[in-house]
């Protein structure tokens, strides 16, 4: 019996019929997945899966990227989107200007103290589930600028990162590889744990009082958001 000639009624034996399965996958597999109902509809239009798994698969293959240029790496990132490398081949080539429409944020460059709170805000504005690719050495450790008085030693101080792509800057091929790895992870339902305590945006009034806080008390309101930046304390 094939799908061209479906069974019209279910009667006779209630044991599953195995004709379709046998013709598709041959011997050796037990028949718990086959039912009369399935045979009634024929085999071809159906894939049985878990909804979560299906969603992950969809997510991984249709990622909206955030159009987010910071520094040198963003030029290579543009090249990745553009002609020749064309990351759209992997269903990840739609840069969205608004974080509200984006699934994946590629962090392409050095994060400095002044930009830290802004990046955190942009990340917070992205809808769940969201993923981050850290592009280049600066997002890993601060890269060549690690010793700078103003440089955050890695984007992971501020937001969780799923995939690190090393390089200064990474070639477009490397970024594509990173994106593919991320797709793989998403398809398996994995996401990055937050491994360090990130720099948080907190209200000024909530901070424990110390010398710096006392000094700034006149300038900053109690309920203003602030981020503590501590170059020496970072790993």
């Amino acid at each position: 019996m094939s799908s061209d000639d479906p069974r019209q009624t279910i009667h006779d034996s209630t044991a599953p019929s195995t004709d379709t399965r046998d013709s598709r996958i041959g011997e050796g597999v037990d028949d718990r997945f086959n039912s009369k109902l399935r045979e009634a509809f024929g085999a071809s239009p159906f894939i049985l899966t878990k909804f979560d798994k299906f969603m992950n698969w969809v997510r991984g293959n249709s990622m909206f990227m955030l159009q987010f240029g910071i520094a040198c790496c963003s030029i290579e990132m543009i090249h990745t989107y553009a002609i020749k490398h064309d990351v759209d081949r992997y269903g990840a080539g739609v840069p969205r200007a608004s974080p509200r429409q984006a699934d994946v944020m590629i962090v392409p460059g050095t994060i400095v103290s002044k930009f830290g709170p802004r990046m955190k805000r942009v990340y917070d504005q992205m809808p769940e589930p969201k993923f981050v690719v850290g592009m280049g050495s600066c997002t890993i450790s601060g890269g060549p600028f690690q010793e700078g008085y103003n440089v955050v030693k890695g984007a992971e101080e501020i937001i969780p990162i799923d995939i690190h792509v090393p390089g200064c800057p990474p070639r477009p091929e490397a970024l594509i590889y990173g994106i593919l790895k991320l797709q793989e992870r998403i398809q398996h339902g994995e996401s990055a744990p937050v491994v360090v305590k990130p720099y948080e945006l907190e209200e000024f009034g909530d901070l424990p009082e110390d010398e710096l806080i006392q000094k700034l008390a006149g300038e900053i309101d109690e309920d203003d958001l602030v981020m503590r930046y501590n170059w020496a304390d970072s790993p």
């Binding site: 103290s113 002044k114 830290g116 709170p117 802004r118 805000r121 008085y149 103003n150 945006l201 000024f204 710096l212 806080i213 700034l216 900053i220 309101d221 203003d224 958001l225 602030v226 981020m227 503590r228 930046y229 501590n230 170059w231 020496a232 304390d233």
Partner: peptide, 18 residues
């Protein structure tokens, strides 16, 4: 003032988002 003489890079700083 970081490029001035007696700047201490080890000290924490606060950045606002207002």
């Amino acid at each position: 003032h970081p490029l001035g003489g007696d700047y201490d890079q080890e000290k924490p700083q606060l950045v606002t988002l207002t």
